[in-house]
Nucleic acid binder design. Structure first.
Length: 581
RNA sequence: GCACCUGUAGCUCAGCUGGAUAGAGCGCUGCCCUCCGAAGGCAGAGGCCCAAGGUUCGAAUCCUUGCAGGUGCGCCA
């Protein structure tokens, strides 16, 4: 249940009744009528802008509409008070029973509390990570992986049919470089001295791959020209790298539904088909691009290339899809890949890219817009850089100096749960500071700890209640005398719980999973505040050993909080803990 | 030169399809914390929401222009 949408229905029904009574003209658009929590809780529990939105079309003064609406809403048992304020806001105060109803819903629906039908079962494809298969995942990939995975879970929670997908860039020259690098390690495994020049990957992680290649083919490739081994070694190496990447993802708790290979596009005619589809729309032509202004490549000279008229779909300049030698640019298979996603019937597409791909957004959107005739929206989320800190000091990464920080390094040091939560404590558009020490601190300034601690505190109460012989199963708690919960701080916590379904929809609509992390921190804060008050006012403590009924009511509130924390952490991919260690 | 992202308290950042007196953590100030649920609690100070125009009953939020920082810009992917 979502109390905000329930009350909005009530408001709309009242407005319709006013139309029937001739107090409002027919044919009004209620689409902009909103029911929201007011910024200042002193104003009430909910506020509606109905009077202000409808004043002009209805030809009446906002305050007059608000007064009339106020009279009708006051007649509903759920509304304890309705008052007109400011330019025409209608503030509503709800009966305590409404908050109790929310708690019961949370205890009854548990993991499903807050689920929504926003997506209406529509298919959405979330493509994320998509790192080149040339080495292990690093910190930058980690943020994209966590973000994409949480977004996918979030969309699932709000009613989408979600596919998680990884695009393997195994078709470009970078996998040839990988193959040559592995070949060097292979020669090394045969006892030869090798040198890693510029343009090869010197990382140690290829040592076992070279060794494995030796075990696979013996000395068959030693002393042979590239033509003999390149294709074979390339396949072998990319396969090994993808195994490595899958292990990295698994360590972070990320599981993909599909891995889509760029290489598999070649030779199937799909690229040609996608380009033909664009050509049929008159969007493909042979032409010469203007040189880029400012930073001009040194060897720039005008060339005729095959171009995609992406400017027709919002891009700044048209984009080449063939190099001057006639081979495809990277963009061409990517067009084909998105063409494939469209043809697989997805209703919405989401790409999660690193910030360095920002320049790629417009052309990709242009391609999808053109190929789908604007039927399939593509949202591209860019994740900004992660800056690493060690004890407050910046931690420089350098491949050359060997201080290259991999995803595995991070997960091994702080754990997958902490990594995931911290990566979501900033919106994707903002750079993120990640301090190896601070994320493990046990204090209020560490949101991961604070949320987990709230959860653990509630579970501690549940354990102690059972020891005291008080039944605290959810079914029992759901039937508890919640009318005993009347204290302001208790109602405040219940109100925060009631915001969860609304928050989830907002996060889902905006594709912003970080909102969940921030909300969970707020929710945890409210619980801690109530808990702390128990120090001064023993009557507010959750466990009242001599009064089972009172305990059950209070614990029902606490349990509802952990229901939401568990669901929220679940979306973020973080395991809720029941005990702090 | 152009495009995209960012600009909110001393610092790091939230801010809901535009809503009322703009929030949190840290830091700062004051009080509380021998035990009874303190890996602390309560309260307070602190703002020209980068700037200037515009749209609107109403703008941190939308539009335009400018400023500052970051990222990117044909034969790399």
């Amino acid at each position: 249940m979502n109390l905000f949408t329930d009350i909005r229905v009530l408001v709309i029904d009242s407005l319709k009744a006013m139309q029937d009574a001739g107090e409002l003209p027919a044919g009004l658009d209620f689409g902009h009528v909103a029911v929201e929590p007011p910024r200042d809780p002193a104003h009430g529990d909910m506020a509606t802008n109905a009077a202000m939105v409808l004043a002009k079309p209805a030809g009446r003064k906002p305050r007059d509409i608000a007064e009339a609406l106020s009279t009708r809403l006051s007649g509903d048992a759920r509304v304890s008070e309705a008052s007109v304020a400011g330019p025409g806001f209608l503030n509503l105060r709800l009966a305590d029973a409404e908050w109790h109803r929310v708690l019961r819903a949370a205890l009854h629906q548990r993991a499903d509390f807050g689920r929504s039908d926003l997506g209406g079962g529509r298919g959405v494809n979330v493509e994320y990570v998509s790192a080149n298969p040339t080495g292990p995942l690093h910190v930058g990939h980690t943020r994209g992986a966590v973000f994409g995975d949480a977004l996918a879970s979030l969309l699932d929670f709000v009613g989408y049919d979600v596919t998680r997908e990884y695009y393997i860039n195994d078709g470009g020259v970078q996998v040839d470089v990988l193959a040559r690098s592995v070949y060097l390690r292979y020669l090394e495994a045969h006892g030869q001295a090798v040198a890693f020049e510029d343009g090869t990957y010197p990382g140690d992680y290829l040592v076992p791959v070279g060794q494995a290649l030796k075990e696979e083919v013996g000395d068959a490739y030693v002393g042979q020209p590239e033509a003999v081994w390149l294709a074979e070694v390339r396949d072998f190496a990319t396969d090994r790298m993808m195994r490595l990447i899958r292990e990295d993802l698994a360590a972070l708790g990320v599981t993909m539904d599909y891995f889509y290979s760029e290489k598999s596009l070649y030779g199937t005619g799909l690229i040609e088909e996608a380009i033909r589809a664009l050509d049929e729309k008159g969007l493909i032509y042979e032409g010469v691009l203007e040189p880029p202004k400012g930073k001009k490549p040194e060897d720039w000279e005008p060339r005729e290339q095959t171009l995609f008229r992406s400017t027709e779909h919002g891009d700044d300049v048209d984009r080449p899809i063939r190099k001057s030698d006639g081979s495809w640019t990277y963009f061409a298979p990517d067009i084909a890949y998105h063409y494939n996603k469209i043809s697989r019937g997805f209703d919405e597409l989401i790409d999660v890219f690193g910030a360095d791909h920002g320049g790629y957004v417009k052309r990709m959107k242009a391609a999808v817009s053109a190929l789908s005739d604007d039927r399939v929206p593509l949202d591209i989320k860019l994740t900004q850089l992660v800056k690493l800190y060690k004890d407050g000091k910046p931690f420089k990464m350098s491949k050359r100096a060997g201080t290259f920080v991999t995803m595995r390094d991070v997960v091994d040091q702080v754990g997958a749960d902490v990594t995931r939560f911290v990566m979501l404590t900033r919106k994707n558009d903002a750079p993120l500071d990640f301090d190896f020490d601070k994320v493990l601190e046990q204090s209020k300034e560490n949101p991961v700890f604070y949320v987990q601690y709230a959860n653990a505190r509630v579970h501690s109460v549940l354990r102690k209640a059972r020891e005291a012989g008080i039944e605290v199963d959810d079914a029992v708690l759901g039937a508890a005398e919640l009318s005993r919960l009347t204290h302001d701080m208790q109602i405040t916590v219940a109100k925060k719980v009631a915001e969860w379904p609304r928050l989830v929809e907002i996060a889902g609509r905006t594709h912003e999973p970080h909102r969940i992390a921030f909300y969970l921190y707020d929710l945890a804060s409210e619980l801690h505040a109530l808990w702390n008050r128990g120090n001064d006012e023993p009557a507010l403590r959750f466990l009242q050993e001599d009064d089972a009924a009172a305990s059950q009511a209070k614990i029902a509130l606490a349990r509802a909080v952990t229901v939401v924390i568990s669901a929220g952490l679940g979306i973020l991919g973080v395991t809720p803990v029941e005990e702090m260690r």
